[in-house]
């Protein structure tokens, strides 16, 4: 372990984090993970589960990206190359969840429909693949 502390500072370029920083970050990561798991198991926290978990995991994400992936030290270009797709990815995630959420509430078959729901729906669409795989329907 003396190796680590001795190496610190001496050889690193000025803009690189040192071994101590790495260890501190690792400690943070572990603590944050432990907090996440704790939040999961504490029932009292269930109502705020989602926001708390998002904040905690977001913090972990940021720590790894900034320190282990050196974005904090590498200038705006690489941060941009990462941040923009990340932004797009987030938009994609949120909009798909929203769109399908709407579909689940409004597009579902309406049981109150007063038309007789009789056998005329043969539900070919329900056919799952395996049974039909070898058979050629037409």
């Amino acid at each position: 372990m003396s190796e680590i502390s001795a190496a610190h500072d001496v050889h690193d370029p000025a803009n690189q984090p040192g071994t101590t920083t790495y260890l501190i970050i690792a400690a943070f990561l572990l603590v944050l993970t432990a907090m996440e798991v704790t939040v999961f198991y504490v029932h009292a926290l269930r109502p705020v589960l989602v926001p708390v978990l998002i904040v905690l995991s977001g913090a972990k994400f940021a720590l790894v990206a900034m320190f282990y992936m050196h974005l904090k030290y590498d200038g705006w270009l690489l941060s941009g190359v990462f941040a923009f797709p990340l932004f797009i990815a987030t938009i994609l995630l949120l909009s798909l969840i929203g769109l399908f959420g709407y579909l689940a509430h409004h597009g579902a078959p309406n049981p109150e429909l007063n038309a007789p729901r009789n056998a005329s729906l043969s539900w070919k669409s329900l056919a799952s693949t395996p049974a039909y795989r070898s058979a050629s329907p037409r």
Binding site: E36, V37, V39, F40, R46, L49, V50, L53, I54, L56, S57, K60, F61, V64, A65, Y68, M69, L96, I97, G98, F100, G101, A104
Partner: peptide, 26 residues
């Protein structure tokens, strides 16, 4: 860089898939 990226993806998966298992999705 690639290795850490795989790590951050796991951070997201661990949270959204595992820890949020009780949360109803869309």
């Amino acid at each position: 860089l690639y290795w850490h990226f795989v790590d951050v993806v796991w951070i997201v998966i661990f949270t959204l898939v595992y820890l949020m298992q009780t949360v109803k999705g869309a």
